[in-house]
Design a protein around this nucleic acid. Structure first.
Lengths: 346, 346
DNA sequence: TATATTCAGACAAACGTTTGCATAATTTTT
DNA sequence: AAAAATTATGCAAACGTTTGTCTGAATATA
């Protein structure tokens, strides 16, 4: 039962022609006569011939494989993103090699190594929270492996990336609250250094200023996203001099923790204080007091777009192959958007 | 800036020795003298030599790659499982090729094709909900690609699999409720044909019988897991003749929907009726009325174990290579376990 | 009919690595 | 000093495919 798979050689031998003819026949090369072309294709079918991809990868120096490194698949954002990536990749006939960094820089480096060794054609990366040294990415340039970053983007020049602009969404969120007659609007933001934090703040300031509510720094608290820290931040906000009637939180998880703290403080949610958040967790319908609205960041689309961009880069690379040193860097920004939930909560 | 990567040839030329010597030197082959071994390894390091994996894959007819097909990454169960898979794979020096079937048989088939063409060494599969024809898996036998199934397992003989026995966990769940003085215990189960459904039912019957509560078929309702169907099932149970004071639900999502329905019926959760569930969603702490307890299925461990098993199979395959036709099929069963939540709910 | 053109196919190299076998160089044994 | 054993290295094939170049045959042009 030794089941060697049929090769091009096998076909050639059986038909008494050369391998090159077989190869060309299978590729519909014009130089091959109709008769032989048919004979080859028929036999290939009969034998269940399938080209040996490993041979082709080797021969072409390409693997049609994309490496994806992201922090954490269990976060809804990333599991959505990977779906977008997969779909786009399959459409472009690429396969996806996956790795999670679990927000650990060492793991990130290790994955990068593995993928490089596996000779992936390109990389899609959302960097780990704790990465602030980008040498391992810069080193990739030398290997001529293009990288497209998405969502979590390193602060270095000359990179390709896809991201979502949070400023607009934030402005929409504040305006939404303003229309609902809120005048003191607080924010529980993320870790100070995070770009995502800065963007949210910027949107907050813009919107507050435009609504003539003025920007009061006391109404913005940073936190490190742990349950405890969120609780502390919430308490601080809700027991301050100017007590907000609405709070914008860094993401849905933060919102949930903040709600818990607010309830501990005997506040009525959606009456004394209400929440608007980022991320749009699918599960939040089920929670007791989901945020009134969420700023959607379109993870699926981000993943998809990033993949399409990468594939485009890969095409270009083979087309121009080193001669034309093209140095345009893609910076693709999607717009976030406020989604208002219709909370028919029981 | 044409940056060809260094090859074994390059090293050979520079040191004026043959490629075979270089290859052997790099592999610490005993036949190579210490002097040359050192020189080769030094130069390799200096040149930043890295073996071309595509060449090796091709030459060895192995890719050190495992294909993983699972239904849906956004389900907590599977995103946990993939972490276990990844960790075990990396430990064994394998890389993971990922694909989601989204519970679509056609996608499943397509992924299988892609992975086969990419010449993965082995496969890890959790089948799609809608798969009831297993030909595409049986076809793999001919290609000599081992498959280890996990969690969702096809009903065919002679396969390797890792699964979690739900019977014990279910028994524990019922006993837990019994100790809390519940005597009428209902169950909202899954689609009738699903093996998972059958197992839960079996556990239910076992435990009820042992507790001398007798098995009352009216207390068990099947549903297709949609929100509407769950609501209908809940209503049926809670307006029946024998009204249960506790309900075991197919999974946490079902529990959440059932709670909503119960509240719609003006029942007090945890007073009039309480819930125990399967799956243990991390988010459920945040919900208004999380289940009192969950039957944990250890997805991470399932993934890990499945991967280890597959790698073992792959080792054996190369060891015995066709001569010794080993036909032991691994059937690995983990035990589920009831996790009681301490619901310090506000 | 002789020459140019087109068509159909074959030949062989190349991609980078591993590995069985042969051989040269060295050392050990008699 | 010759034979045997050991050690270190080289040669070449193999893995399956693609592709540039060459050749022979058929056809068209003059």
């Amino acid at each position: 039962m030794e089941n060697r798979l049929p090769t091009i050689k096998e076909i050639a031998k059986q038909l008494n022609i050369s391998v090159s003819t077989v190869s060309r026949a299978l590729h519909d090369h014009p130089n091959i006569g109709l008769r032989t072309k048919m004979r080859v294709q028929q036999l290939a079918k009969d034998l269940n011939y399938e080209p040996n991809q490993t041979a082709i990868f080797f021969q072409q120096g390409k693997t049609y494989t994309i490496g994806v490194i992201l922090p954490e698949l269990s976060e809804a954002f990333f599991s959505s993103a990977i779906s977008g990536i997969e779909d786009a990749a399959h459409k472009g006939n690429y396969t996806v090699l996956l790795g999670q960094s679990h927000d650990d820089v060492e793991k990130e480096k290790h994955l990068l190594d593995t993928f490089r060794k596996h000779r992936v054609d390109g990389l899609l990366v959302s960097i780990s929270k704790n990465t602030n040294n980008y040498e391992h990415f810069e080193a990739l340039q030398r290997y001529n492996i293009p990288v497209v970053f998405f969502d979590r983007i390193p602060k270095i020049p000359n990179i390709h990336y896809v991201a979502c602009n949070m400023i607009n969404g934030t402005v929409q969120a504040i305006n939404f609250l303003f229309k609902k007659a809120h005048r003191i609007i607080g924010m529980i933001n993320g870790p100070e250094k995070l770009p995502a934090t800065k963007e949210r703040l910027e949107g907050y300031i813009q919107a507050m200023t435009k609504s003539r509510l003025k920007y009061d720094p006391n109404l913005v608290v940073n936190c490190n996203l742990t349950k405890e820290d969120v609780a502390a931040a919430t308490e601080k906000l809700l027991s301050g001099k100017r007590k907000p009637t609405a709070i914008v939180t860094f993401n849905d998880y933060v919102a949930l923790d903040a709600v818990q703290q607010a309830r501990k403080m005997k506040l009525k949610i959606n009456k004394d204080v209400c929440f608007v958040s980022y991320a749009n967790l699918p599960i939040s319908n089920y929670t007791a007091f989901p945020p009134l609205a969420s700023v959607e960041q379109f993870p699926y689309q981000q993943g998809q777009k990033a993949t399409e961009t990468l594939i485009e880069l890969l095409q270009k690379k083979t087309d121009e192959s080193a001669e034309n040193n093209n140095v345009t860097y893609y910076k693709i920004i999607l717009e976030s958007q406020l989604i208002v939930h219709d909370n028919k909560q029981v």
